[in-house]
Design a protein around this nucleic acid. Structure first.
Lengths: 92, 92
DNA sequence: CCGGCGCATCACCGGAAACTGATATCACCA
DNA sequence: TGGTGATATCAGTTTCCGGTGATGCGCCGG
């Protein structure tokens, strides 16, 4: 989930949130070079954030909603723990 | 929110989820040097993820649960959009 | 069967960010 | 009021990571 740190990565995920798209779509939507996008997609794919689906000559990518929701759950858990333990300040 | 990418940053946030702590606590809990932690805290503070609270000679830090929940909401929104638009695959 | 296209991978380079050491500042205590 | 400890800041170095160019592979249309 540390992968969403990069702005290009976030732009790719945001573009994929509008629906599955092949690499060429992302290339001319985001204005980045093709190897660049392909590298980011490899990282996202390896982290389980996106899934690749070969379709003839093209390759379609779509988001893995479960992974995003898991990351969101982790953040909400952190927030809940922060609220619950806001009182016990341990002294030095 | 791209700040949680760094493992040291994540460790600091995780430690602060257990309750407010001063810098010295984080230093010997995480085993990192003091300027290092202080730098990370500055970044987190500047991003609104943590809040600083001077307390005599010490400085206590505590998490900003609202910021974490906002980031979590963003992720759930992304996941929801991904699920909703998983059908419309635009052709090349 | 072959030329073109979409895509992935590799090697390289440049910039940004993290870690380190030294230093300045502030608050407490004797 | 001087000393000590806690913290923040700064400059330097090094490491890591994203961007670029070139290349290879696979699939399609002619």
């Amino acid at each position: 989930m540390r992968l969403l740190a990069d702005p290009a990565r976030a732009a790719i995920v945001d573009a994929l949130a509008a629906g599955p798209a092949c690499t060429c779509h992302l290339v001319d939507d985001l204005g980045l070079t093709q190897p660049n996008i392909s590298n980011h997609l490899r990282a996202l794919r390896h982290a389980g954030v996106v899934k690749a689906e070969p379709y003839g000559r093209y390759t379609y990518y779509h988001l893995n909603a479960d992974a995003l929701e898991a990351a969101a759950a982790h953040l909400t858990d952190l927030a809940a723990r922060a609220r619950a333990s806001s009182g016990n300040r341990r002294e030095c």
